[in-house]
């Protein structure tokens, strides 16, 4: 059963060393630091209801190139931390020529304790609509094994690239984009409820 927890709410006894994000220990008890969802039978883990994107190594995100430097680019990744994309000196892979204002997908290569974030594998995105949703709702847009993503793509016909940082790139006919966006916003608002997949399916099928 899903439950809402609030900052300072006790979660149980502390019997593990590595604590998930948003869980802290005081004495021998664990507490939630976040306003979020827990599923107690699934262990101590909080899904925050909101929060800005914090870069995780391996995540694919959608960034906006801010500035070009001789060694690479500064990229906005919709996070309190800005990303740095270095141009590799020797590489077999094609590295695209980028300009400030370009929208790219990039992967988080590494990050350190003071918040420097290194990016890799850029790919330019052109001619679409960039939308932003709460990063905490992105897993729901993917769905189990990408099932929700496939559902939206197949029923509307849009091309969709979903960044873990809350940014989504949609490309297609205007009304297809509108349908897809409507479904995405619906997921964003109802992510904490049960039955979202079916409701979205009905919504998309009804729209057509």
């Amino acid at each position: 059963m899903r439950e809402i927890v609030i900052p300072g709410e006790p979660l149980g006894e502390a019997n593990q060393d590595r604590l998930p994000y948003g869980v802290f220990r005081e004495g021998d008890k664990l507490y939630s630091a976040l306003y979020g969802l827990v599923e107690p039978d699934k262990g101590i883990r909080i899904t925050p209801l909101n929060g800005r994107y914090l870069p995780r190594v391996g995540d694919v995100v959608i960034g906006i190139v801010i500035m070009a430097r001789h060694s690479g680019y500064v990229v906005d990744i919709n996070s309190p931390y800005v990303g740095h994309l270095s141009i590799p000196r020797h590489s077999n892979l094609k590295f695209p020529r980028l300009n400030p204002g370009d929208v790219v997908t990039v992967k988080i290569a590494s990050k350190n304790e003071v918040g420097d974030v290194a990016l890799e594998s850029p790919r330019r995105l052109v001619k679409g609509k960039l939308i932003e949703i709460l990063p905490t709702k992105i897993p729901r847009v993917f769905g189990k094994s990408g099932s929700m993503l496939d559902l939206i793509k197949n029923t509307t016909g849009v091309q969709m690239i979903v960044g873990r940082n809350g940014r989504i790139w949609l490309r297609g006919e205007p009304d297809a984009i509108i349908k897809a966006e409507r479904a995405i916003r619906f997921i964003e608002e109802n992510a904490h409820k049960y039955g979202v997949t079916d409701a979205v399916k009905k919504m998309l099928e009804g729209d057509i």
Binding site: Y194, A199, K202
Partner: peptide, 9 residues
């Protein structure tokens, strides 16, 4: 935390 329309997911 209600259930929308159909079954649990």
């Amino acid at each position: 935390i209600e259930t929308l329309g159909g079954e649990d997911d």
